[in-house]
Structures are given as structure tokens and as C-alpha cells.
Design a protein around this nucleic acid. Structure first.
Lengths: 342, 342
DNA sequence: TTGAAAGCGCTAACAC
DNA sequence: GTGTTAGCGCTTTCAA
């Protein structure tokens, strides 16, 4: 790989001139500009960003750290952040922690070492995780960090979060209004903040309506397909079967549909269903599920914007936390109970 | 952010000693080692990989360039490559081109500038794209590149590909054996190599059986949900409706299911279905689709291994191209025609 | 075992 | 408009 010195030599100019042509940092005569361009082409020269970054002490790389790339919610987040980054001349790279805290640690350390401009973090850290010291250290060391979807416990940062509790509450309230009274929930993993908040919404909605929470109607899943399937099989085999189920994420809801199918029941005739996330239009075909839709693309894009603002010093002072509201989309899976067979 | 000089000063040793402690490049007395460790901790020091990379002229970063992160096939590819990378002390980052050639160009140029160790490329470049000069230049410049899933036209590289033609051929042959004779196809975008190859498999299977290919039964989609939906609606409104449809990817197959549902038909009673990709167990619930399953995790992992071998010089000489075979999984959506109503 | 110092490729301050 | 050069933070050779 050729260097700026070789380009300068070939073009018969100084390295400063080559640099100035590349970065347009000061005016260079058109004759020289042309000679430099030609030399660059001839040598197939690519400026060494490593050297440049070392000199200017910053990179225009944004790093996104994600827990589970196979959950369709996250790719949309990537697309949002990516478009925002590109629009402002940044470059987004992504790494996947596979929900493992150790791996997250290692990835963050690597990004820190490479001195990325900032980090978008959807942490694998649980909501009571005691292990967040490295993240505090990171931030105190001056690295701009924006938390996405999930915050890190006991760490103050900018964040873009969803109003999980509000969304779940509205959704369950809707089920109640439709005439359902025995409403089960398939919740997410205990250690995840988002799962906890969604459960809170469920609890509050029941409380609002004066309906007691029944432990037997709450089954914990892990946000994956199989656990949604198993949970609903279990619920539907109860002597006192629920008449509606609220599912804490979209992937588990697909498992729920499969379970209903396996037991040869029908939705909504035998059981109403409502869920977080809207995979339906993209990956599934029937029935149309009532769902709490997260504006994931938008969340990614806003978090990206926030991070770049912070990097560029446009965002001074205290941390800002944005709570984005989800949208409840009512579909056939939760039609009013009295109409089910009408 | 503190530097190695500050650490050295605080520990009362030379920078060489600090470096040797960090990299274990030579033996350092335990007294000094301890002092260095303490200083690192006290200063919250993180070695500057940028400076290191500049000096040693290489990085242990693997870059993966993907066309569509929202297609569930690709995240699995990432996981495979990532696990392979981590196991050998590399670090994988991903960027998404959104199927735009211009964006791909820009991303590759950035990765080149940052002197990543190598690139895993699932190109957005069409199979007849004339625009691959930058990729040839990249490779000639010494950058290790492994093509994944798709090759770049007229460019010689290592590659891990799927036997698309073989997979499609076997699948359609299966449909024929099950007694279907009017078999339609929802194909992928014309410019994509994979789509072309799958169509070839379809064509060959019909040819094998002496069934003429009918243009009216071939509808081109774009690998997305909506196009699968529209294509199947169109096919099912034909006067001479096909009795089976072969769909070129999993996302479109979901659209196909929705179309069948919309027209109040049933699969396989009214129409058999078989498809590339297996989204079924993860995102969908019914009916179980006969599918050509790609070993995507494995493809990612093998491509990653190949790239690291190439980087480390274990893979000398000519380029190697691996063609991975998919697996046909037969499910209820294509039961033998005579049994459909029996 | 340890330290001094050159140099990786670039930018930008300074001089002309 | 243009060139010279110090120095970004690290590794590694050479010398002790």
C-alpha cells in the first residue's frame, strides 16, 4: 500500500499539498491538483485513516453494540442509526454480544481501544447487574455513549428508550375494554429492564380495572420463539383457561400462534392475543395481531443523532433521556369478546 | 485519555516496559510488572489501538459487508462469522449497504482506509454489474477478501457460496414427484446471481421431467414480503391456476402464505408451496413449509475461517471457492397431490 | 532485565 | 500558494 509520501514524490509536490487536495483544507492550484489526482489514481492510493486518526485524535466511526442480531427489532434500529450516520458523514459499525455480558465487555473495550467517536449501546447487562463499572469508567474517560432500548443500571447517560410500561398498560387496558377478564401474560426474562417494565404495565392495567393479578396466569419466557410456544401450551392446558393473552415480544407471539394451532384452537374465537412488536406484516401472515408497535427505525435514528450531537459538543450539560411512545395497533386478534362468534 | 508515557512515568519505568507488560512480549520483573499494573488501573488506561495499528501495520478487525440486515438470512451469517472470529482473537464488525452499490463502495473504501485485516463481502453488485473495479483494485492492493453468498462478477476471490441451482432443482423435482405438474415460480430480482441460479434450478427440474416452462407462471419478486404477496395473488387469479408454487426466498414465502389466506384458499389443499429458506420455526407458525434450508451460520463461520487463514498466510496460492449444499426439508405444504384430500 | 529513541503515515503550525 | 517539519501513541531494535 502506498503512502502519502510516494504520492507526493510522484506528483512532484509536498505531502502537505497532497493532504490539502484530499481534504480540501486549503486551496491548491489546479495544475497541482490534477497532478496529485493522477498520482493517487496511478498508485491506487488509499489514505491511511489509522495515521490520520492518530494525528487528529478522533474518528468518525460510530459503534453500535447489540445483544441479539437475530431479533428483528434490532436490524431496524441499525438501519435508523446507519442512515442518520451516513447523512452526517459518519460511518456505523455494529457488533453483537449475543446477550453475554463478558462478550459485551470485550467488544466495548475493543471499541474504546480503537477510539471510536461514540457508542450506541443496547446493553446485555441485566437491570440489577452489579458489573457496570467498565461502562462507568468508559464514560468517565470521555467516551460519548447513548443507551438504546435498555439502560445500564446505576449509570447516567444519554438514552433513547421506549415507554414500555405505558405501551403494555394501554394494550392490556384495551383487552379489558374488549370484554376479556382472564388475561394471562407471557413475560420476558427477569433480568431485562424492558421485560420488567412491560410486566409493570400489565400489572397496572389490571389494577386500574380492579382485576386481581393471578400468578398462575403469568409465565416467564426468554423472548425467543420456543419459550412463547411452551408458555402458551402451558396456559391453555390450565383447568381455568384464560380468555386472552398478552405477549411481551413479537418473536414469542409467533410461538404463541403456533401453540394455539397445535392445540387446534383458534384466535380470536377461542382466545384473544395481543403482543409487543409488529412482525406480522413482514414475517407472518395470519391472524393479524393486535400489537404495541415500537418505532424502531426512528429510535435508532434519534439515538444516532443524539450521539453525534454529543460528539460534536452541540449537546452540552446534563444527560437527556428520550422516552419514545409506542403505538397500539388494534387488529382482529383482539376483537370484542361479544362479537367473536357474531 | 492517558497514554503509555503517563503510565510509564507513574510506574517509574520506561514505555518499553509498559508495552512489554501489556503484550507479554518479554519478561518483566514482578516488582515492575506490579507497579505497571497499578498505574494502568489508577489512570484507567486503555492502550491506543490506533497507534499500535499504525506501528505494526495491521489490525485484527474483520469487516463484514452485508446488503440487507433485515433479511433474517444475514444475521445468522453474522453469528457464524462472529463466533469464528472471537475464537481466534479477532473482532468482527458489520456494515449494511441496503443493496445500494454506491453505499457499498463507500463502506468498502472506509474499511480499506481503516486497514481492517480482511473483508467478508456479500455484495450488492448485480451479476452483470460493470462497476466492480474498486473491488478488483482492493484485492490487488493486497486486502484479503472472501465473498459470501454472492460473488462479484469478473473478480477472482475466495468465496463461500450456496449451491442455489442444485437446491432449487431438487426442490422442484420433489414437487413433480409429489404429483404436481403446473408449477409456478416466484423468483428473485433479475440482477442477483442467487436469484438467477435458483431460477436455473427450477428450469432444469422442469426440463428433466419434460415439462415445458411457461412464462405466465413465472413472476419476478424482489425478495421482500410485499412482492411475494403480490406475485401469488396474480398467480392465483390466472384462469389456469398452478397447483404448486416454488418461492425463491423465505420472506417472499411469508407473503405467499398471506396471499393464499387473503383469497381464502388453503395450503396444501388448494395449492402446494415450497420455498428457499426456513423462517418457519422461528417466525411463523403454519403451515409447515417445505423448504430448501441454507446452513447460514455454518457459511458465516467457514467464510470467517477462510478469511483468517488467508490473512495469516495459511492459505497460499489460488483462490478457493466452497459450494455449500442446502438441505431439502419436506413438510406438509407439499404433500403428495393424491393425498391432499385423502 | 531494562531503557533510549527511531519511525509507522498523516496533519497542521509555521515560514516563505 | 506552497513546503518543512514536529509530533500524534505506540512497538521494537539496539545498546547497556
Amino acid at each position: 500500500m502506498s503512502t502519502i509520501i510516494e504520492v507526493a514524490k510522484l506528483a512532484g509536490v509536498s505531502t502537505a499539498t497532497v493532504s490539502n487536495v484530499i481534504r480540501s483544507t486549503r486551496v491548491v492550484s489546479s495544475r497541482r491538483t490534477e497532478r496529485v489526482r493522477a498520482a493517487i489514481k496511478q498508485l491506487n492510493y488509499s489514505p491511511n485513516e489509522i495515521a490520520r486518526s492518530l494525528k487528529v485524535r478522533q474518528t468518525r466511526i460510530l459503534a453500535m453494540v447489540l445483544p441479539d442480531i437475530t431479533n428483528p427489532f434490532f436490524p431496524e434500529l441499525i438501519r435508523g442509526a446507519e442512515d442518520a450516520a451516513f447523512a452526517r458523514g459518519y460511518f456505523l459499525v455494529t457488533a453483537n454480544t449475543d446477550e453475554q455480558v463478558g462478550r459485551e465487555r470485550r467488544i466495548i473495550e475493543a471499541f474504546r481501544s480503537y477510539r471510536v467517536g461514540g457508542i450506541l449501546l443496547a446493553t446485555a447487562q441485566g437491570r440489577k447487574g452489579p458489573d457496570a463499572d467498565h461502562i462507568s469508567a468508559l464514560i468517565q474517560g470521555g467516551m460519548p455513549v447513548v443507551c438504546l432500548d435498555r439502560t445500564v443500571p446505576n449509570v447516567k447517560t444519554d438514552a433513547v428508550l421506549l415507554d414500555n410500561t405505558g405501551g403494555a398498560r394501554e394494550c392490556v387496558r384495551h383487552l379489558i375494554k374488549q370484554g376479556y377478564s382472564s388475561i394471562a401474560m407471557v413475560s420476558g426474562p427477569a433480568h431485562l429492564q424492558t421485560a420488567h417494565e412491560r410486566f409493570e404495565g400489565y400489572r397496572l392495567a389490571l389494577e386500574d380495572a380492579g382485576i386481581p393479578v393471578q400468578q398462575s396466569l403469568i409465565i416467564r419466557g426468554d423472548f425467543r420463539f420456543e419459550s412463547g410456544y411452551q408458555a402458551v401450551i402451558k396456559l391453555l392446558k390450565l383447568k381455568k383457561r384464560p380468555d386472552a393473552i398478552f405477549v411481551a415480544n413479537g418473536v414469542m407471539a409467533q410461538g404463541a400462534l403456533k401453540a394455539i394451532d397445535t392445540l387446534e384452537l383458534r384466535c380470536p374465537e377461542d382466545l384473544a392475543l395481543a403482543t409487543f412488536d409488529h412482525l406480522a406484516s413482514e414475517y407472518s401472515h395470519q391472524p393479524e395481531l393486535t400489537s404495541v408497535v415500537q418505532p424502531s427505525y426512528d429510535m435508532g435514528s434519534r439515538a444516532g443523532g443524539m450521539l453525534m450531537d454529543r460528539i460534536e459538543g452541540r449537546l452540552q450539560g446534563g444527560y437527556s433521556v428520550i422516552r419514545v411512545a409506542p403505538t397500539l395497533i388494534v387488529r382482529v386478534s383482539s376483537v370484542a369478546k361479544r362479537n367473536v362468534n357474531g
